[in-house]
Nucleic acid binder design. Structure first.
Lengths: 112, 112
DNA sequence: TTAAGTATTTAATCTGTTTAGATACATAAT
DNA sequence: ATTATGTATCTAAACAGATTAAATACTTAA
């Protein structure tokens, strides 16, 4: 299991991708990352909440409080903005490009 | 062009991979990264020299001064140790694994 | 003699993640 | 009743690794 440092610079992109499927909240994202990664990536909740705040400040997302009838503690939901969608598009294609370069730098050219 | 933050946690792995092909020095690694990445990754020399120091302390590499007959400034060469080779093996396979997960988290499942 | 290329090093700063707590509500178990 | 567990958010301080910005020094070409 590795820390979320492996997605440094792309934590926001991961969150935005999830938000593109619909509004969601921190606790759920944290569980989604753990699930999708098969427990391999250990992201701390603080990391997500701080990322939310950064993204709200830069207007990539908007927040609202969920209603209380879901049981459990109150939830703060987030919606992706148009600016957020554009940012996701840029960063995800950047990642695809960088990823190929990293393959060369870390593994080398011998693999197909 | 992105900063070397995109390879945070794997800078050492990139250096070790280069060292597995033979001894080399900081300035050359810096140029190699710039070349292999087609100028897309902007790694600062300080980043490399600090990584060298960390790796020397943890005995992943060993250093020696090159002789002066190469022209230009003196060079400090590095050799990978057995421990370094093992570390490379671990980190490179970790990266392959994490990379697949990041593909799911950043891009999603719809691509082949 | 000036500029440009080669080459290393260090201190201070920045950014994003982690650590380590606190708070609060609902439900199941003792 | 009260304790434990799960759900859910938030913050301050610490930490790690990268960047900034500077200094040093040698060689070769203009």
């Amino acid at each position: 299991m590795v820390s979320a440092d492996v997605l440094r610079g792309y934590t926001e992109t991961v969150i935005l991708r999830k938000l593109m499927e619909g509004d969601t909240y921190g606790y759920e994202i944290s569980h989604m990352i753990s699930e999708v990664s098969g427990g391999e990536i250990d992201i701390k909740d603080a990391t997500i909440y701080i990322a939310f705040r950064r993204m709200e400040e830069s207007e990539l997302i908007k927040a609202y409080w969920g209603n209380d009838d879901t049981g459990g503690a109150r939830r703060r939901y987030y919606t992706i903005t148009e600016k957020g969608k554009e940012y996701y598009k840029e960063k995800s294609s950047e990642w695809l490009k960088i990823n190929k370069i990293l393959m060369k730098l870390i593994i080398g050219d011998e693999q197909k």
